[in-house]
Design a protein around this nucleic acid. Structure first.
Lengths: 124, 124
DNA sequence: GCGCAGTACAACCATTTGGTTGTGCAAACT
DNA sequence: AGTTTGCACAACCAAATGGTTGTACTGCGC
């Protein structure tokens, strides 16, 4: 696992980003941060879990470069890093394009999505 | 973990899709399928792992609804299911938009991505 | 009917993941 | 100076993940 030809492979960017996004808690954290920077405790508050658990999630997001953190006094506010989400968006866009070349359904799906998003709003 | 208020939560669509995409092998499989349907053995061939391992990956992709499979005689060809990739694309697009409202860097990044994609072509 | 090709299931194993509790430490409050 | 606040590190645990081998099933070629 993570080993090719006997040499450890640095976990690639894309895998880090996608697996960071694969958790509902972390997606919720990102949504929250989208509306403004926040401290760890502020982020932890809505969740039924300990502050330490949230800290771990933040570390995952940090490793995926989806957030960055500044050490401001005794609190460590979190800031979004948009660029690395684009890594994931790029992969998907590229592949959706290949498929759309075959199925020619890209625009149709995009339109349907736009409507659905407006309807159910939240993460899930 | 996957438990809220003592009740098991059905793993949400988004998490399934993102975690399915979080593995390089599975992304490679999807890329391969983008160029045409294939059998399990055809898919397994380029990888340094057993057919059984690939079968497991296919089951993950199937659960995320990224592929579907037909039982044609004794081989089970895999077919892409574009719609569910759009679930993921939709989430990202929605959030990138929120961020771009704050940072106003959306178009810039999209343009940069398009160039980069052309340059390095492959998955990673 | 027999063997083989193609695939899946089961049991097993190591590592990772997501959570816990308990503790430590640095900055701010009083 | 002493306490509280905000956060992280460590040890631990259960479950999920990604792989293995071994085996079994199913349909085709002969």
């Amino acid at each position: 696992m993570g080993i090719v030809g006997g040499v450890a492979v640095v976990e690639d960017e894309l895998s880090l980003v996608f697996s960071a996004l694969a958790d509902p808690t972390r997606r919720a954290i990102l949504e929250r941060l989208a509306h403004g920077d926040a401290t760890v405790n502020q982020l932890a508050e809505p969740f039924a879990m300990t502050q330490q658990a949230v800290s771990k999630h933040l570390k995952v997001l940090e490793r995926a470069r989806l957030i960055s953190r500044t050490r401001t006094a005794q609190s460590r506010p979190c800031v979004l890093d948009t660029a690395h989400l684009d890594v994931a968006a790029g992969w998907i866009a590229r592949h959706r394009q290949i498929w759309s070349d075959r199925h020619d359904r890209l625009e149709e799906h995009l339109a349907a999505l736009k409507v659905k998003q407006r309807r159910d709003g939240g993460t899930r």
